[in-house]
Amino acid sequence: MSGLELLRAASAMPDRAGIGTLLGMTVEELEFGRVSFSLVTRPDFANPLGTTHGGICATLLDSVMGCAIHSALDAGVGYGTLELKVNYIRSVPIDGRRLVATGTTLHVGRTTATAEGKVHDEAGRLVAHATTTCIIHR
């Protein structure tokens, strides 16, 4: 299966395991070069200041950007994150706020790929944005 076909098949599995399940991620969109996931904040996402820990947004961004790259890969080709750069714009309460992250490919080459991602809150405000570089495993 192509990367996109594999992502679609995996998202349809009823008993998925992994980081997405742990954080309660929901697949919103799976297209070639573009992926969106959402999650709802909860108290166990809190940092010491009582707002959503930055690692939650970083994980959400790493997931959508990596999967956007994966969606553009041929069958049998994998990837791994080489670099992740996140910019945080505003804090997010832990009281059940829905966050939606979208990752989009910028470049998919033979040995590396790049993507960008954005996280918005339920009011449409930008919460964080990021870029990534991934290595392609052929």
Rank of each mutant, 00 (worst) to 15 (best):
M1F: 05
S2Y: 04
S2L: 05
L4D: 00
L7E: 05
L7S: 05
L7F: 06
R8A: 04
S11Q: 10
S11R: 08
M13W: 13
M13V: 13
P14N: 05
A17C: 12
G18L: 10
G20K: 07
G20W: 07
L22E: 13
L23K: 08
L23I: 10
M25F: 14
T26G: 10
T26H: 12
L30R: 02
L30I: 07
E31L: 13
G33D: 05
R34L: 06
S36L: 03
S36I: 01
F37C: 10
S38Y: 01
S38P: 00
L39K: 02
V40L: 03
T41Q: 06
T41A: 05
D44K: 05
F45W: 03
N47G: 01
G50L: 07
T51R: 01
T51G: 00
T52P: 02
H53I: 02
G55F: 04
I56Y: 02
I56Q: 01
C57I: 11
C57K: 09
A58V: 04
T59L: 05
T59C: 07
L61Y: 03
L61P: 02
S63C: 14
S63E: 14
V64W: 01
M65W: 00
A68Y: 02
A68T: 01
I69S: 01
H70W: 03
H70L: 10
H70M: 12
A72Y: 00
D74S: 15
D74Y: 08
A75Q: 14
G76Y: 12
G76R: 11
G76C: 11
V77R: 12
G78T: 04
G80S: 15
G80I: 10
G80V: 14
G80M: 14
E83I: 10
L84P: 08
L84K: 09
K85N: 07
V86H: 01
N87D: 14
N87T: 14
I89H: 14
S91R: 13
S91P: 14
V92K: 13
G96L: 08
R97C: 10
R98D: 09
R98Y: 11
A101C: 11
T102H: 07
T102I: 08
T102D: 07
G103E: 00
G103T: 00
T104I: 15
T105G: 10
T105R: 10
G109A: 12
G109M: 13
G109C: 11
G109K: 13
R110Q: 15
R110W: 12
T111F: 07
A113V: 09
T114H: 02
T114K: 00
A115P: 02
E122A: 12
R125Q: 12
L126F: 03
V127L: 07
A128L: 04
A130I: 03
T132R: 00
I136L: 09
H137Q: 09
R138M: 04
R138Y: 02
